[in-house]
Design a protein around this nucleic acid. Sequence first.
DNA 1: TCTGGGGTCCTAGGACCC
DNA 2: TCTGGGGTCCTAGGACCC
Length: 427
Amino acid sequence: MPTPAVRRFALVDVDSCFAACERIFHPDLYGRPVVVLSNNDGCVVARSREAKALGIKMGMPWFQIRAFAESRGVVARSSNYELYGSISARIMAILRDFSAHVEVYSIDEAFVGLYGSPREIDETAREMRRRVWRDLGVPVSIGIAPTRTLAKLASHGAKHSPGLGGVASLDCYVPAQVDAILEATEVSELWGVGRRFAKRLAALGIENARQLREADPALIRRRFNVNLQQTALELRGIPCIEIEERDVDRQHQIMYSRSFSTPVSSTTEMHQVMSIYAQKVTRRMRRQNTVAGALWAFASTAWYKEPFSRIFGAVALTPRTDDPVVVLRAATAVLLPQVDSNCAYVRAGICLSDLSLGETATPLPIFAPDPNAGRLGRLIDKVNASVGEGSLGLGLAGLAAPPDWTMKREMLSNRGTTHWSELAVVG
DNA sequence: TCTGGGGTCCTAGGACCC
DNA sequence: TCTGGGGTCCTAGGACCC
């Protein structure tokens, strides 16, 4: 008798994604401990398996562990999101060869909907894993289950049990075994349960996933919120969490924010920061063809240094716009008056919200304030794309040499999949 | 000396409307 | 003197994700 077909979610997760991407064009790094650092080469944001084994933790400041790490042969890289994004897109393309239902959840994870007998689904998952490794040289783990929450849990198993060959399916276990797995899983390890909720759940005597599954869903809803109730129901095998594809037109806000390599205190410098950030953030919008109806700008001192200080201001943009001139004017108007020259600001940002698609927001001609609005931004993009980033800028941003405060990325790898001039060289 | 950068969703409470 | 019962919208704050 044939096994009945079932619907399953396969969570495909790249193992140590950023470190794996760094290895693609540097095969000598396979088997060596690799860490990837945040902007400004500040702290560790990704670690290879070997680096984890050395006890290097997520978020550790690089300056604190550098001597130790280097003595153990750890290779550090500045984060190269352009490279990772490009590799991610290739992985997703491979997954789409196996299913029409691929939900890209983050740069290194996707849920893939699969249909068939448990055995067929398991074989498909193993083939996906082989293909990604063969075509890109990147290892992935895959967890298979009836709900997304359980698939996430299964993928942890796939990652940490070498005997499974990188693929773990809950269908391989009888109910008593699943119970045991859930019992061995602390609630804080579950997708959707953070430290705060874990603490409050513990106060109710709910410490592991099995206990959460068996808790009264109405109580969970009442004491916490609907999200946690859904997590609890998903543990029972009832799918109820949907992933919204992050379509451009559904994104609610776009932010550009960076830390500086050296602090900024003067209004002049902050103006320069805003000039550059206004161009960066509006360029993202133009790429997506969106316009924003509201803006907020902020700057802050270092949070780990007393006294912490943060300034911000918000303003509506009427009509909606993606024009860097308008955005810059708005950002400086709300922020600069608050700049305190006694403060050492280490970070600033511009956030645009109330987004909508460009075409739908074009005002009637008689209401359009300036027939040329919006064209300047595209012109700047075009010039910079053809003759080089930073060639043409707005206000104080048109600078041939980067200002002192721009972020530090001293160990940046080549962007070998997106820039001709940075192609890998063989020989 | 040196500590990331994005996002989303839910809830409670107030203002306001009929 | 009596003092309803909905509904919407907005905002701030809290929680979570990678």
